[in-house]
Simulated assay, not measured.
Amino acid sequence: MRAFLFVVFVFLPVATQAETLKSAEFDHSHAAYTELLQKHVVVYDEGRRSVVDYAALQKDEPALNAYLQNLADVSVDQYRSWNEDQQLAFLINAYNAFTLELIVDHYESFASGERESIRDLGGLFYSAWEREVVDLLGRMRTLDWVEHKTIRVYFDEPRIHAALVCAAMSCPKLRAEAYIPTTLDAQLDDQMRTFLSDRSKSGIDEKGLYLSRIFDWYEDDFGDLRAYIRQYADALADDKAERKALAGDIRIRFTDYDWRLNTPENAGLLKSSQ
Rank of each mutant, 00 (worst) to 15 (best):
T20F: 07
S23E: 01
S23P: 01
F26H: 09
H28N: 11
A31D: 10
A31G: 11
A32C: 03
A32Y: 01
T34L: 02
T34Q: 03
L36W: 03
L37P: 07
L37W: 04
V41I: 13
V42D: 02
V42A: 05
V42E: 04
Y44G: 11
E46N: 13
R49E: 11
S50D: 09
V51Y: 01
D53E: 10
A55N: 09
A56H: 07
L57C: 07
L57H: 03
Q58M: 13
K59M: 06
K59C: 04
A63T: 08
A63I: 04
N65R: 13
A66C: 02
L68Q: 09
Q69N: 12
N70S: 14
L71T: 02
A72G: 12
D73I: 03
V76C: 05
D77Q: 15
Q78H: 00
Q78A: 00
S81N: 11
S81T: 15
S81K: 03
W82V: 00
W82K: 00
E84L: 14
A89H: 04
A89Q: 05
F90V: 03
N93T: 08
A94C: 05
Y95M: 05
A97N: 08
L100C: 06
E101P: 00
I103A: 08
V104Y: 02
D105N: 15
Y107Q: 06
E108L: 12
A111R: 14
S112A: 12
E114K: 14
R115L: 13
E116R: 14
E116C: 08
D120F: 08
D120N: 14
L121P: 01
L121T: 04
G122E: 07
G123V: 14
L124G: 02
Y126F: 14
Y126E: 09
A128Q: 04
A128N: 10
W129N: 06
W129M: 10
E130N: 15
E132T: 12
V134Q: 06
D135Q: 10
L136V: 12
L136E: 09
L137K: 07
